[in-house]
Design a protein around this nucleic acid. Sequence first.
DNA 1: CTGTATACTTAGCATAGCTAATCATTAGCT
DNA 2: AGCTAATGATTAGCTATGCTAAGTATACAG
Lengths: 146, 146
Amino acid sequence: MTEKQSLEEVGRSLHSNAIHLLRHVRTEDSAMGIGPAQASALSVVVFGGPLTLNELAEVEQVRPPTMSRVVEALVKEGLVRRETNRDDRRSVIISPTDKGTRILQEGRNRRERRLIKLLSKLDADEIRCLGKASRILSKILVVEHS
Amino acid sequence: MTEKQSLEEVGRSLHSNAIHLLRHVRTEDSAMGIGPAQASALSVVVFGGPLTLNELAEVEQVRPPTMSRVVEALVKEGLVRRETNRDDRRSVIISPTDKGTRILQEGRNRRERRLIKLLSKLDADEIRCLGKASRILSKILVVEHS
DNA sequence: CTGTATACTTAGCATAGCTAATCATTAGCT
DNA sequence: AGCTAATGATTAGCTATGCTAAGTATACAG
């Protein structure tokens, strides 16, 4: 019972912290000159290699029409390329341009610097604790390929 | 140097985990019948007691016109009340209705159940670690009243 | 070769973010 | 008191991002 209580508390607290953490770093997003959906999609394209629009939509958990428009904007800004797949001419392959890769890295760095500035208020023990917790979270969150 | 490296890793990892965590629980939001901005604002009104529109906008880190419209929608749906402040008739006080409080609790519970389902894959030690990390994060994130 | 399924796009709607401009009220200064 | 500046909220209008429904083009199945 105590354990279940604790589980709920931890869940509630993690939830709240995740919201606040993202709000905090998101202030740096505007410096990238693109919206959050574009930034997130670009990130997947840069780090997740070339992939189709449907795959990208699935990773980003949005519907294909939404992703189609986001990609449209990224193409217009020269951050990704959109080419028809030679093996299946119905589908398109999205890949990052050099500019897209550069822009993303810069934005990512800004976000991380922002976060690091916050984290630097903590002592080494606390950082270690966060690191350990982060690895635990990765185990159950990032996988999700079931 | 090792410490700084670790700081960056932890920052990057936390950032990524926060994104994935919120994506995960956000799937439950639609069940509440209101959008994410409305849900988040309602949460503040319910748990943060009556407060003015400007205060609400600040907590939610959006501009007053944005919050004005969000509140407008919540009022229309009968989830919050909007009354002019007697002490300063320029400002308005937002407070939750019974319906708003109920709706929010239900949605919150759904999100948390979702999160708890994920967390229950972990053992007691790991949960404790997450709890500790969460308290550390709260210290540096939720405060921000400087 | 005809019909169905798949991948994407287009069209149209709702929510949510912003700035600029407006209105009402309060506060401050002589 | 009375004028002016500051403050709290709203309105108007733009952009971005989410959705569903419907359309187009290609692939596949018989």
